[in-house]
Design a protein around this nucleic acid. Structure first.
Length: 724
RNA sequence: GGACGGUUAGCUCAGCGGUAGAGCGCUGCAUUCACAUUGCAGAUGCCACAGGUUCAAAUCCUGUACCGUCCACCA
């Protein structure tokens, strides 16, 4: 007799089953046959343990992988970890701070080494977490974004793009975080509404408005709209004298259409070094650009007596001075406007002119192909890439259409160094992939300086699907690329998905994946975003300890449509634990019948308990088998169309409210009747087997465990998906 | 300033053209016979509002209200 314990105990099952799977080798597609089906795992950041968002992503990906494996595909799910340059450096610097250390007191090498060790530890922790989630990914292909093979590929891409003229270095204005001392992409900044005073000052014959008097020291251009009738008597290029903060200056009139006639007085002075719009105006008219604020947010000598002051500290003092000079006209106290902040630390962004490397998004390729942006948009038009979470497609297109060049250099230490040297003598830019070049190829000087910057982490992860496969073996790239699905959170649609599509087309002329499935954010039960500072972060491993992996997985999938955010309620997980137990007890009931139990214990006649469809003898039999058939069909269709939650709901309903509530109850009577016994047992057995298969992608542990009690020779994870 | 989404049972959410659904909660009954991590039965909904299309609308269209999100950012 096979006897099951009275209740399902996930803690005794999960590790054991995972070890069996690992040992089986079926996570590795080299041990499978069929047409490839590939998902590249979005590599978790190596700076923190897994959160529930990861659990959701991993669950969805594992469901897809397990389903397709059972459909006979050669499935590859490739795991990895991201060094997550800026993010990790921020986390690590905070850690240093707590320990009373600072990167500014360490050498770059010391810092890198310490950060490396930190990341290696976390990497291990998050890999263990992925295993506990039941992820059937191929660990033999596990990849880290700082693996030497990956860096090599990233460098080659950089060189190729440079040679193709897509990558350039420019000293234009960028978003500068004075705390982190690095430039940031637009995406890495956020806006916040602030109410601040808005000042009107006399500037020669004009009145100008500003919220930032501290930037105004060097202002010697006064700009107005060419069509503004109020100012027709001033001509472009006119010089006039004005008394200003630190004495008289000569101002030049500039006419530019960027000025909004409706705003303020319609006249402004500009600070090209610290404002993107002013910078553009200055470029258009070839005006002088003077730096007023240093990279730490302090005023430079041009500020005279205010030199060295932090800008916010200087602001009221400057206003006071202008007031004393009777140049202050009025103050609007409640001026509302948006200020730009660093998305990580919330520091005010101080635009600065710092040379950065950029990738052109809109330049046509030298081989005649369209720009990176246009190739990505074409991929959408031609359905080479489909965003299955439909509502994001418009958002995606809109963003792509308005995309700006991508700054890929960061002034941070943790990351892949930019493989470039500059000749101090002749100024030549030298690409040096292996750090081998010692003399300038142009002037032979040995006075070379390394580029101090590292790549934006998305520059390397943007090549991830291509690079991970190629890094492992060229044949992998041939077999598994393009991949089938990219499953990730909508919050990195622009950061990552967009870049992967562009980079992939650039490098291979193929899409990196056919479908993009975007899941929502997991929020807490009050719909708040989870964050460490709010203290509402749910640790998925803690939940697994209490309720089991299967319960967590089913709760995450159940009744949440793709792309919608999920408030994670513990009650729901608890309910799903009950469901796992229900399934367990169904199996217990089925196995309580001696014939089935003996068959399972010894391996009896397959004819007696056919795995193929049994014959129905009663209405109850007919009914359950028919409903089972419908269920197989509809849940298969749901899975094919990424409606995982609907599949989950239908299976749940069938198992509990059809199979258990109705059929098992009816079977109790039928089993008393010798004439009906055999067919009843067959129906019970067949239905249970089928349900286990359908449920396996969602709840892999409990189903595999029950399956093993039924003494099936093969593992459930590679059992054939039911037919209909 | 642009765009997108939401508004369904007490709470959290599915459903998106054909008799209103799930989890949790609630009420009553049952309980040595798979399961108290239970079963059975039940209550709870003008599916935001107003128009329209249709034989038929929670589901499609238009508009309104209120929530939410993304993008762009005017000195």
């Amino acid at each position: 007799m096979v006897e099951l314990e009275k209740a399902y105990d996930h803690s005794k099952v999960e590790d054991k089953i995972y070890a069996i799977w690992m040992k089986s080798g079926y996570f590795n597609p080299d041990n499978l046959s069929g047409e490839p089906y590939t998902i590249i795992m979005p590599p978790p950041n190596a700076n923190a343990p897994l959160h529930v968002g990861h659990a959701l992503g991993m669950t969805i990906e594992d469901i897809l992988i397990r389903y397709h494996r059972m459909r006979g595909r050669k499935t590859l799910w490739l795991p990895g970890t991201d060094h997550a340059g800026f993010e990790t450096q921020v986390v690590f610097e905070k850690k240093l701070e707590k320990e009373g250390k600072s990167r500014f007191k360490m050498s770059r090498e010391e810092f890198y080494k310490a950060c490396w060790d930190f990341v290696q530890q976390n990497k291990h922790i998050s890999e263990e977490g992925i295993k506990r989630l039941g992820a059937s990914c191929d660990w033999s292909r596990n990849t880290f974004t700082l693996d030497p093979e990956i860096i090599k590929i990233v460098y080659q891409t950089f060189k190729k793009m440079r040679n193709d003229g897509l990558i350039y270095r420019a000293g234009r204005i960028c978003n500068w975080c004075p705390k982190h001392q690095t430039g940031l992409a637009d995406l890495e900044t956020k806006y916040e509404e602030r109410t601040e005073p808005f000042y009107y000052f006399k500037y020669g014959p004009f009145t100008i408005g500003t919220s930032r008097p501290e930037t105004k020291f060097g202002d010697k251009y006064v700009v107005m709209h060419p069509k503004d009738k109020r100012y027709t008597k001033y001509k472009h290029g006119d010089k006039l004298n004005a008394e200003w903060i630190n004495g008289p200056i000569t101002a030049t009139v500039i006419k530019d259409e960027a000025v909004d006639m409706e705003f303020g007085t319609g006249v402004m002075t500009i600070t090209p070094a610290h404002d993107p719009i002013d910078f553009k105006i200055a470029q258009r008219h070839k005006l002088d650009i003077e730096t007023i604020i240093d990279k730490r947010g302090k005023l430079l000598p041009i500020a005279g007596e205010f030199e060295g002051m932090k800008i916010l500290e200087a602001r009221p003092k400057i206003v006071e001075k202008l007031k004393a000079k009777r140049l202050l006209e009025k103050i609007e106290e409640n001026y509302k406007h948006n200020v730009q902040l660093c998305y990580k630390c919330g520091s005010l962004i101080e635009p600065q002119i710092v040379p950065q490397w950029y990738i052109s998004m809109t330049k046509q390729l030298p081989d005649g192909r369209p720009s990176l942006r246009d190739m990505a948009l074409e991929a959408l038009d031609n359905k080479k890439v489909e965003i299955v979470t439909e509502k994001f497609e418009k958002i995606f297109r809109h963003w792509m259409e308005n995309i700006r060049d991508w700054p890929i250099s960061r002034q941070i230490w943790w990351g892949i160094p930019i493989p470039v040297k500059y000749c101090v003598d002749c100024g030549e830019t030298i690409i040096d992939l292996g750090d081998k070049i010692k003399n300038c190829p142009k002037c032979k000087s040995s006075n070379l300086e390394k580029d101090p910057d590292t790549f934006d982490t998305w520059f390397s992860s943007g090549q991830w699907p291509y690079a991970t496969l190629l890094a492992h073996a060229e044949k992998d790239l041939n077999s598994f690329f393009p991949t089938q699905v990219m499953e990730t959170g909508w919050d990195i649609l622009f950061f990552w998905v967009a870049r992967m599509i562009m980079m992939s087309y650039y490098l291979t002329n193929k899409p990196p994946f056919e479908k993009v499935y975007l899941h929502g954010l997991v929020r807490d039960k009050d719909k708040q975003k989870m964050s460490k500072s709010k203290g509402n972060v749910v640790d998925p491993l803690g939940v697994i300890d209490t309720y089991g992996t299967d319960a967590l997985r089913f709760a995450l999938i159940f009744s949440t449509a793709a792309g919608n955010d999920i408030p994670l309620a513990e009650d729901k997980i608890k309910g799903m634990k009950h469901f796992a137990n229900k399934l367990w007890n169904i199996a217990r009931f089925v196995l309580a019948n001696e014939e089935i139990s003996n068959f399972s214990a010894k391996g009896g006649s397959l004819r007696k308990f056919p795995i193929s469809k049994p014959g129905a003898k009663t209405d109850a039999d007919r009914d359950i088998l028919k409903k089972l058939d419908v269920l197989v069909k509809s849940s298969t269709e749901h899975l094919e169309n990424f409606r995982l939650h609907e599949a989950a709901q239908e299976i749940y309903h069938f198992v509990w409210h059809e199979f258990a509530d109705v059929y098992i109850e009816a079977s109790k009577k039928q089993l008393q009747d010798e004439k009906l016994k055999q067919s009843t047992l067959s129906t019970l057995y067949f239905t249970l087997l089928t349900v286990l298969k359908l449920l396996h992608p969602f709840m892999p542990f409990v189903t595999e465990e029950i399956w093993s009690k039924l003494n099936q020779k093969e593992l459930l994870m590679i059992a054939k998906w039911p037919q209909y």
